[in-house]
Design a protein around this nucleic acid. Sequence first.
DNA 1: TTAATTCGGACTAAATCAGTGCTATATTAG
DNA 2: CTAATATAGCACTGATTTAGTCCGAATTAA
Lengths: 159, 159
Amino acid sequence: MVKLGKLADYGLVLMTCMAKDQGPAFLRTARDLSAETKLPLPTVSKLLKQLLTSGLLVSHRGTKGGYVLARAPREIPVIEIIAAFEGPVALTECSTDVIGLCNIESCCPIKTNQRIINQAVRQVLGTISLYDLISPLQLTAIKDARGNPVPLVPSGRIQ
Amino acid sequence: MVKLGKLADYGLVLMTCMAKDQGPAFLRTARDLSAETKLPLPTVSKLLKQLLTSGLLVSHRGTKGGYVLARAPREIPVIEIIAAFEGPVALTECSTDVIGLCNIESCCPIKTNQRIINQAVRQVLGTISLYDLISPLQLTAIKDARGNPVPLVPSGRIQ
DNA sequence: TTAATTCGGACTAAATCAGTGCTATATTAG
DNA sequence: CTAATATAGCACTGATTTAGTCCGAATTAA
């Protein structure tokens, strides 16, 4: 399916939640976010931990503790959130920049070309920030790999 | 890892092979391709079958049979090859255009936004064709989601 | 001190996927 | 017509990955 794992999916939900309702030093607890997102508490807890160690969140322990975004939504590219759960984004295995893993290696005709795919995808995900996800309408002039505009709102309405 | 399954990966290898060495009505057998790619024959056979039913290849049975590309490499976008093995490309589950699967649904704050991610990725993969993979240097002016050029050959050398 | 909350690890059950094998069908060569 | 070759389609298995849960320790505010 070329899809994200559920954890990464949920991670995006949580990050969007936090970006929307953020105040100055507004700490959100795991329980709090669990209630808001309807995701099971243990899972939310796990997600937050992961986001923490990836440097996307900052935590405060003890009573009245919680999590806050480490940076402004504008400064958090979507690819970082995804990478927090799925590791470095690389559609094709040959292109994880690790040499020697590929058993075809020497004769592999597309090692070069797989980089093209990876780089294109990475670039796109890198240019979309968490802020873009909160306010999609302000996302200006998204263009595709050849420079043509991408119709984000096909029929004038976002579904 | 946000990566393709191995089958899709191998599928790209096979398609690239066929695109490179194609002649007029040049049939390639599974055995042939297996030898060239060093992939096990049963697997190659399975891959070819899949590519066939997806409409990317045309087959001829019997002695002197084999497979040919159904279209010119220029007319085969990478996303189709990937979709042949992984189904429709959709990074996030909410966005498979199926309504009602998401258990958060009503309160899901990012349904809209996930479309942005999916659409951007799909668009990029849709603009890269099999032909681009054979001759990467002729791929002109790949640009990212905001219109900035993507450096395909970072240090002047393709590794 | 007590209650609330994060922190870190380990563990289990389930789903997905790669890979293989076998039998039937079609086509060409001789 | 017959035999050899190659695809067609199906089912099966073993392994890998992943989601999800739980528990005890550390930390902080009241």
